[in-house]
Amino acid sequence: MNLRHLAYFAVVAEELHFRRSAERLGITQAPLSLAIQALETELGARLFHRTRRTVALTEAGHALFDDARGILSRVEMAKENVWQTVSGQVGRLRVGFTNSSSLSPFFPRLIHAYRTQRPGVQITLRELSSLQQIESLDTRELDVGLLRLPPEAPASVHELVLTPLFEEALLLAVHAGHRLAKKRAVCIADLRGEPFIAYPRQAGVALFTQMLALCEKRGFTPEVVQEAQQASTLIGLTATGLGVALVPASLRAIAVPGVVFRELSDDDTTTTLYIAHRRGDANSRAQQFAELAATVQ
């Protein structure tokens, strides 16, 4: 059934006057009459009783009018749904984030701002290491990621649009009674021979590989005596005096008695948080989320 003919029929059924219906539709009466005739021929039933003075619906016309309104309403709803999806107003968005990035004040501000602007979008948050996020973006299990770039990133990272959001300093987390706690600032070379608490090597955490690279640049390999999957666990273990840890400044938010944070004087001890999404992705929600992230402070 031709939707245009059905729409013409619905207008005539409402107006019960061909001239007014044609004016409302912005056409002349001739094509309107032809459209109604074509619809009647297709259905094998008369839809209107027409005289010189009056137009009235037949029984078949009444039956079609009830269905036509529902059909045309659903067509408009379908158009609206497509528009909302294309414009990023509805749908789903799968966002990856690292454990440490969730502790930055930036993270809750971004998520709250997006949910406020796009209440119709179902947002799913997944805590993953930076390397896991890169892999999940490649396999389309994520739409967008908040991550740090490992020094040796996989080749698939070149298929991503990476936008730097902010840079933060790395700090030394150390027991309050440690010799380095007495210094205002520490350099990486001061950590030679110190036991380290760190994220697991195999977890794909960019901060681990950065720590390794920083130490090796100074001619030593850090001795990791204890691993921790979570940032809070890492800080908590530092309080035991088992070792020292290099952490982003946002982890200062984890206040644990007995742990102090010291600045690093080296000029290469910063870490950058990026927002990443697939290059050329048709998902407008990912692009909008990335654009919003660049404006949130």
Rank of each mutant, 00 (worst) to 15 (best):
Glu227Met: 02
Leu292Asp: 04
His5Cys: 11
Asn283Phe: 02
Gly236Val: 02
Glu135Ile: 10
Leu142Thr: 07
Asp267Tyr: 02
Val55Cys: 03
Leu39Glu: 14
Arg74Val: 06
Ser33Lys: 01
Leu103Met: 04
Gly241Thr: 12
Met77Ser: 15
Val296Asp: 06
Gln132Asp: 04
Met1Ser: 11
Ala56Thr: 09
Val224Ser: 09
Ala294His: 03
Ile36Glu: 05
Asp138Leu: 01
Pro119Glu: 04
Asp281Gln: 11
Arg279Val: 05
Ser136Ala: 06
Ala249Ser: 12
Leu237Tyr: 15
Glu194Ser: 12
Gln133Leu: 13
Val86Gly: 06
Glu14Met: 00
Val121Phe: 01
Leu128Gln: 02
Glu76Ala: 13
Thr116Leu: 13
Asn81Ser: 13
Gly70Gln: 11
Thr116Tyr: 13
His175Pro: 00
Ala176Met: 13
Leu47Gly: 03
Arg285Thr: 06
Val256Asp: 00
Asn99Gln: 06
Ser87His: 09
Met211Trp: 01
Ser136His: 02
Thr272Met: 15
Gln89Lys: 10
Leu57Lys: 07
Arg109Ser: 12
Ser104Ile: 03
Ala113Thr: 09
Arg74Asn: 15
Arg179Pro: 09
Asp268His: 08
Val121Asp: 01
Phe261Val: 05
Pro195Thr: 04
Phe65Cys: 10
Arg118Met: 07
Ala255Met: 14
Leu237Pro: 00
Ala213Ser: 05
Pro151Ala: 08
Gln89Thr: 13
Tyr8Cys: 07
Glu291Gln: 14
Glu14Gln: 02
Ala153Thr: 11
Asp268Ala: 11
Arg50Asn: 05
Leu170Val: 08
Ala78Val: 03
Arg148Asp: 08
Ala13Thr: 02
Gly44Ser: 04
Glu40Tyr: 03
Leu93His: 12
Leu142Gln: 05
Ala155Asp: 13
Ser130His: 06
Gly91Asn: 12
Ala173Arg: 00
Cys187Gln: 11
Leu149Ser: 04
Leu131Phe: 15
Pro195Leu: 03
Asp281Arg: 14
Lys182Val: 10
Thr54Met: 11
Ser156Tyr: 05
Glu76Asn: 05
Leu234Gln: 09
Trp83Ile: 15
